[in-house]
Amino acid sequence: MRALARPSSGFLLILALLLLWEVSARFDWMNSPNWPPLSVVLAALARDSLGGELPLLLGGTLWRMFAGLLAGGAAGVIVGLLFASLPVTRRLFGLTVELIRPIPIPAIIPPLVLFLGLDNTMKVTVVGLTAFFPVLTNTMQGVRAVEADALAMGRTFGIGFWRRSLHIVLPACLPYVFAGFRVALALALVVTVVAEMIAGEQGVGHYLVLMQFAGRAPEMYATVILLAVLGYGLNRGFLAFERRALHWYFALGAQRN
């Protein structure tokens, strides 16, 4: 918030772009009714927000996004810990994971509909798959970065494998896990909306397409603005949460610098 209050150049640039939007639409530089002025878009945003339609749709979208993010992220952490600490699991499943990873998830939504339907099951799965990989990669990197001395310390006190994993490896990986979640969060919002656009009758994504097909450009851009602000807010919120949860990590970093 402090950054917003300070008239920094970044904030001014956004203001300038928004102004350019308004002016270009008012004077019809684009020569298209599909480029409505910002003020009209904001009016549509206010109307649909106060009418309760957008907040409800947004709630559904966020619900699906977080469900997928948490499920996929948790799976990423668990599989990452297993792959890194039990090499046999990596030999068994590593190739499968590596083959699935490069698939662009939105491209497989239509066939996924065959197995998982059009509604929450499919969308949460798609988001979960999206969130899984960045968290997995980062968790594995985190496990490799755990201090050997910290692990040996656990052993010298007679602490068993699972307790060492939970109390030494997991907390030591957390900065990496959080980094993975930060990437996953940005992807999850995008993929949730894309999934909603492609299939079913749910959430902000479906609303976006419906408005596009109904020729209601202001409503469409209102949704886009809402998503941009939401994405920004989610990221800021996540950073604040990360700073609290990993206060020790940031303190250590500050000390090293």
Partner: peptide
């Protein structure tokens, strides 16, 4: 129970 899909791909 209608399911409206704009593109109709599904």
């Amino acid at each position: 129970d209608t399911s409206t899909t704009a593109g109709g791909a599904t």
